[in-house]
Write a protein that binds this DNA or RNA. Structure first.
Length: 456
RNA sequence: GGAAGCGUGGCAGAGCGGCCGAAUGCACUCGCCUUGAAAGCGAGAGACCCGCAAGGGUCCGGGGGUUCAAAUCCCUCCGCUUCCGCCA
């Protein structure tokens, strides 16, 4: 039962993925589009400079060589095939004398086609591999820099809570309240996992419900329940693969390979992979609450305490499919939807524009939302809202067609809306009272059924 | 996991190895007709790749094979349906 709740009819899906051998030239297939190499090579794009801002050195010479080599191979194959076609149709009407010569010519052409196709296949694969590893071009209006310290302040909301007592961090709070059990989580699964207990577990459920209701009722999102195990093709579409396999948990049963999703962005965005969306149906706004799994390789020693950086956490995600020309306008909407979550809970936060060298592989522009944590006396990232332009749509084959027949690629955007664990951290720390209890925001009470957490 | 069947354009559904990118119906677009609509009549309309263009090429689930020539024959994989088994 796959009847979609979306207004778009699913396109026919091919059964092969990225993983297989390269397809025959011209055959319907997962596209080798990712970046458009012609756009990258166009001096007007200024790709080299823009990619340098994020520390990526674009090899223009190789790209150019592969592209022109591939194109001329395609042309040679096409020409030979065109002649072969003519010769083949002429065989039937040919006289007994002419016939052997024609058949012979057809045989020759067959070999020409085969060699041109083989060359095409090889170059196509090389080109694809090169293109798949090139990140998106950062927008010019992002600040320079490569770390979160280089981010540019955009706006703040709410007052950082000034407590007239020594604030505890969420771990001490959670344990004193009897809602958080990290030691037992370690017993079950090792480091970077968490167990929530009693009102803590209920709080997690309440937050997820609160966010989902907010987005579906107030912001126009359609809720989905999606798989949390996905294919290599799906992850290639959104850009986690092939470069960042070490960040993912991989599973395998017999020959079948599946990955645990690092975010619901992956299944939600790939819902429309290999489909053509009618522009009049855009924007599409999707949300889902899923667990997320991250290996956190390379973050040894960072945020080892508490709920901030776990191998498994739960998150509500927002994804939008929009017309390419509107992506930045839509990003403003999207970041507002994420902010509404925090505003509704009365949690102080600020919005920053990430530096060009600090945004994700697939992004061209990213806002981070940072929430105030009294326990750490600083703002910490709670959500990222990114505009991917057509980067993901090209990789995943998400096309658009307007009423007048114009075709193109969609733009995709996504934001957390929000991660449950980090929200809980902020809730505990900003809501703590001198007596060790924690106030629950009014908006959440209908979902929790209680308005305060008290030490056990 | 075992057995049988099926996979053709937005949908339904034809298709003798060459005249098949593919009949027909529905849906769609544009005209005509109409106060408006329906009906009727006429015309049009797939996707992708190479090319400035003219044009050329590819696509009948994927891949491979036979042949001068494959939607059509063969192999294989995938998916779907039904029956049985196993389970939530």
């Amino acid at each position: 039962m796959v009847r979609s709740t979306s207004c778009v009819r699913p396109a026919r899906l091919t059964t092969s993925g990225w993983g297989g051998s390269p397809n025959r030239p011209g055959a319907r297939r997962y596209p080798a589009t990712m970046h458009d190499p012609r756009v990258l090579l166009d001096p007007a794009t200024d790709a080299v400079r823009r990619l340098t801002r994020r520390g990526f050195a674009l090899d223009v010479a190789t790209l150019d060589k592969l592209l022109s080599g591939r194109n001329s191979a395609i042309q040679r194959a096409d020409e030979a095939r065109a002649e072969a076609k003519r010769v083949a149709t002429s065989v039937k009407g040919a006289s007994a004398d002419e016939r052997p010569a024609r058949v012979e010519r057809a045989r020759e052409l067959k070999a020409v086609i085969a060699s041109a196709e083989e060359e095409h296949r090889g170059l196509e694969t090389e080109l694809r591999d090169l293109l798949l590893g090139i990140p998106n071009l950062p927008a010019d209006d992002l600040p320079d820099g490569t770390s979160d310290a280089d981010a540019e302040h955009v706006r703040s909301w709410g007052e950082p809570v000034e407590l007239d007592f020594a604030p505890l961090d969420h771990v001490d709070l959670g344990e004193k309240l009897g809602i958080l059990d990290l030691a037992r989580a370690t017993k079950l699964s090792g480091p970077r996992f968490a167990v929530l207990r009693g009102r803590g577990a209920k709080l997690e459920r309440a937050l997820a419900r609160y966010f989902l209701e907010l987005h579906t009722e107030q912001h126009g999102y359609t809720e989905f329940s999606v798989p949390t195990l996905v294919t290599r093709a799906a992850l290639t579409g959104t850009g986690q693969l092939p470069k960042f396999e070490h960040d993912l948990f991989r599973t395998g049963v017999a020959e079948r390979e599946l990955f645990l999703i690092p975010t619901a962005e992956v299944p939600l965005t790939n819902l429309h992979a290999q489909e053509t969306l009618a522009t009049e149906d855009l924007p599409l706004a999707y949300t889902a609450h899923t667990p997320c799994f991250r290996s956190e390789a390379g973050s040894y020693g960072r945020d080892t305490r508490g709920l901030v950086r776990l191998h498994e956490f739960s998150k509500v995600e927002l994804v939008r499919f929009v017309e390419a020309s509107r992506s930045r306008t839509e990003l403003e909407l999207l970041v507002g939807h994420a902010e509404a979550c925090l505003q509704g809970l009365g949690l102080a936060y600020r919005v920053v524009k990430l530096a060009a060298g600090d945004i994700g592989f697939s992004a061209e522009f990213t806002y981070d939302i940072e929430v105030w944590l009294p326990g750490q006396q600083r703002y910490r990232e709670i959500a990222s809202a990114s505009d991917f332009g057509t980067f993901q749509a090209r990789r995943a084959g998400i096309r658009t067609k307007s009423r007048d027949g114009t075709r193109g690629f969609a733009a995709t955007l996504n934001s957390s809306g929000l991660p449950i664990g980090r929200t809980l951290v902020a809730l505990l720390e900003q809501g703590q009272q001198a007596d060790g209890s924690v106030r629950i925001p009014e908006a959440l009470v209908p979902y929790t059924g209680f308005d305060v957490l008290t030490p056990a």
